[in-house]
């Protein structure tokens, strides 16, 4: 596997990822002679890139000369590793019964449209990862949403816009 080929594959379109890969290379180099370094390298890679997409796992597999399936086996085993890109904040709309009947779905639709993001996805500007929660125990505040650890109550689409503007 030649070096240039790797770069072509990940930096198609001239993305600014080269510096990140260079940083990762330094980490891999420093761990290369240490036994069993895969997990430490994955930690570093996640630190640098924010998440571990399969392309990045492929890169690491090649560098460490480990089968890709093994790298993937490790990444998917540990809950600390994420294969999906996460936003700066996690936005959760509660869809417990109370929130559902009080308009939780309306909030979901509103967010999808406003932020152009699907449930489970992350906004293009990487501000929010959008998730749906089972009951968050705030039935009296329905419909409720959570951004990170903060709970917002009686949310309307209009109020939602105000909340989002604060992030």
């Amino acid at each position: 596997m030649s070096e240039t080929r790797q770069e072509c594959r990940f930096c198609a379109g001239g993305c600014g990822e080269q510096a990140k890969y260079a940083e990762l290379d330094t980490v891999i180099e420093s761990y290369k002679d240490r036994e069993g370094c895969l997990i430490m390298v994955l930690h570093a890679a996640q630190e640098i890139f924010g998440y571990l997409p399969i392309e990045l796992q492929t890169y690491i597999a090649d560098k460490l000369m480990i089968p890709l399936s093994e790298v993937y086996g490790v990444v998917s085993f540990y809950s600390f590793f994420s294969m999906k890109e996460c936003g700066k904040h996690t936005l959760r709309v509660c869809l417990g019964t109370a929130c559902y009947v009080r308009g939780g779905m309306r909030l979901i639709e509103h967010i999808k449209e406003k932020l152009n993001v699907e449930v489970g996805g992350t906004t293009a500007d990487k501000t929010f990862t959008f998730e749906v929660a089972r009951c968050i125990g705030a039935c009296g505040l329905a419909p409720a949403i959570m951004i990170d650890d903060e709970v917002y109550k009686h949310v309307t689409p209009k109020y939602l816009d105000e909340i989002l503007a604060g992030y």
């Binding site: 069993g36 086996g73 490790v74 085993f77 540990y78 590793f81």
Partner: peptide, 25 residues
Amino acid sequence: RIGAGAFVCGEETALMASIEGQRGE
């Protein structure tokens, strides 16, 4: 060596597997 979020790695043989860079089994 830093774990990666697997309770089972508290078990000593799983812990060793994890240090070795494998699935913590």
